[in-house]
Design a protein around this nucleic acid. Structure first.
Lengths: 198, 198
DNA sequence: CTTTTTTTGTTCTGATCTGTACAAAACCGA
DNA sequence: TCGGTTTTGTACAGATCAGAACAAAAAAAG
């Protein structure tokens, strides 16, 4: 069935993800992508059709792995709703400090995408929007659990609180990118979670 | 003293600011800037030397007007520290809903800059960093006032709380850009401010 | 071995990019 | 009115951009 591919598609997407993450859609050229992935021009276009298609694949890969990992923390049974959200924020702090220390930039690919092309590209906007709704639902469930087990204030709408936590995470991502170190992020997280307690 | 200019420099910077704000540094071409400002290529380069210089002027203009406006709210005497921060958040909510309704995009030019080129351009990073420190100081003063007048919990470091409020504002900016409407933003603000009360 | 199918490497294309060159135009001072 | 100075319009330069074209290479199917 023809010549087999000399590359692993998943691996290529991961490399492309790093590249787009660091430089954004507009700031990344197809030459950059070829160099980062090791693919030639024709292999890249033969497989992914266009720069925008590859971007969507890379972005989807990012949000899927991120949301999955955060989802396992959020859905962990055995701890209170508040504890699960606290764990989520810990994951964020660890992520950002790891990013800062490992050099390859910081911040969140999703946030970067929201603040740049999402407003100008409906197809890309759809990816982040679907992910947003997934995360809001997960959060709402954890928050409702917390309101039942008494760890989270019950006098507020779970949907509002889910938006609040989302916004808190967004803020921590941007703060990390504007220079906030681990201790600053931990302070933001511990202060921010106070708003949820009864 | 030579031929006088046929344009108002401030006005040009405002137009350029809108353009960069909407499309980002990489996404805005010099042709876009000419069209948006009405200047010809040579006038633009004669006055601002390069795309990056103009970007810095536009960004400085933005952070100055924004921080000044938010500063007057934060420094308002006659109300408690907590009230002043609540007013700040109200300003943010009003800004974002106004942006959404008036069409010309939403979100914050500063946040967009942080999440895109700031990490790749030290000169631009310096602009946002200086502004960040100004805002953190203003916030810390208001928070210390609040801790003295009893409206804000005194058992937390003012610097940590200043970072928290900054992060809260960042988060609201991104939330607005990802589709949060006025009521959602108001919910985030009112929940977020709970964390500050004693 | 031959044919068919797919990937790969290289080259090309036309558009767009930032920035420059240069002369015409418009103003001021004398 | 004339000389000096600055802005303006247009044309251009060289680089880079996303993507297409096409034949060589590599494998499976017959």
């Amino acid at each position: 069935m023809g010549r087999p591919r000399q590359f692993d598609e998943e691996r290529v997407i991961q490399r492309a993800c790093r590249e787009f993450w660091a430089k954004g859609f507009d700031g990344t050229s197809t030459a950059d992508l070829c160099q980062a992935t090791g693919l030639t021009r024709s292999s890249l276009y033969n497989t992914f059709h266009s720069k925008e298609h590859l971007f969507r694949r890379a972005l989807s890969h990012y949000v899927n792995t991120m949301t999955a990992r955060q989802g396992t923390v959020l859905d962990a049974s055995g701890s209170s709703g508040l504890e699960r959200i606290r764990s989520l924020l810990t994951v964020i702090v660890d992520d950002e400090t790891a990013n800062q220390e490992s050099g390859h930039g910081s911040g969140c690919f999703t946030v970067n995408t929201i603040t740049t092309i999402a407003s100008r590209n409906p197809d890309i906007a759809r990816v982040v929007e679907a992910d947003l709704h997934r995360r809001l639902s997960s959060l709402r469930l954890a928050i409702m659990d917390g309101q039942l087990d008494g760890s989270i204030a019950a006098d507020r709408d779970p949907g509002d609180l889910a938006w609040y936590v989302t916004s808190l995470v967004y803020g921590m991502r941007v703060a990390a990118q504007s220079g906030a170190g681990r201790t600053a992020l931990e302070g933001i997280a511990s202060t921010g979670i106070e708003a949820l307690t009864p």
